[in-house]
Amino acid sequence: MNSKDQSAPFLEVKDLEVFYSAGKQKVQAVNGVSFSLQKGRSLGLVGETGAGKTTIAKAILRILPHASATVKNGQILLNGTNLLSLSEERMRDIRGNEIAMIFQDPMTALNPILRVGNQITEAILHHSSMTKAEAEKHAMEMLEMVGIPAERFGEYPHQFSGGMKQRVVIAIALACNPALLLADEPTTALDVTIQAQVLHMIAGLKEKLGTSMILITHDMGVVASSCDDVAIVYAGQIVEYGTLEQIFDHPSHPYTRGLFNAIPSMNIDQEYLEPIDGLPPDPTHLPEGCYFSPRCKYAAEACKTGNMPVITTADGHLCRCCQYNLVAKDEKK
């Protein structure tokens, strides 16, 4: 739980920029995102809908829709190899094998006309030298591991409930023992009791297999229970980055503080929640200067122009705000 053991990072994303083109419009989805992840740790990517979290994950796996999405700039280094410069063929070996992804909506993430067992076996066959029978046996073990009886190997997705489908999706993702797991809102589509089960299961499997994880969510509670590091994403930028303790105990960016204020408190009787005023910026026309400035109560003249510098407040705690002193002072009050 300390960031002192600085070996070469397992995954490093540098200045990632992605845009989507829709007709003549350019949607700037990711605007210079950099972060690194140590082996075995979990990073939570937190942000509103449309902040670019899923795009970051899909860019790492290189499964963005190539017709509309363009990675303009940046590097994604996995153990020192830049994934963005790999051939498609080499990338296919990594997909599902070294990096795997759990998708947001289990209802649509499985092919409705293939047996779930085959959907797991397929990934295993692709990345190992196992025979079909061995791969099927391994797939059944995977099903058991996520808590589905192996007899259901031959069933179709429509015969499973939502939570069960998400377990199958997780089994597919973990089938080849990936080093990095990208979990894109794995619990959003599930109801709360199933959410807890699924999170608990992911945490357990992660522990068992030594997998690193990027967990995408907008739920601070999920972050608190399953992440070591947290990155707050706003309008395609990381506005604050630190360990779980740093972010939860000393939120420095006005946006992060706004997010925490919007969570109802258990110990005071609150009549109204405190929302962040305004709406996230239109990604086709991002504001000048700090992207959060139009909604920020600390915004000064300096915030309205130029690029916002990234300031390191404490050890490894990054914040993209020039007014953070004011924010910190406010916190003490």
Binding site: L61, R92, R95, G96, A109, L110, L114, E122, A123
Partner: peptide, 21 residues
């Protein structure tokens, strides 16, 4: 659709993605 993205994320070849999924 999502399941085609899932198929891609498993590392299948484009041919398998198109003809099988």
């Amino acid at each position: 659709s999502d399941y085609v993205t899932t198929a891609r994320s498993k590392g299948l070849t484009e041919r398998e993605v198109i003809y099988k999924h």
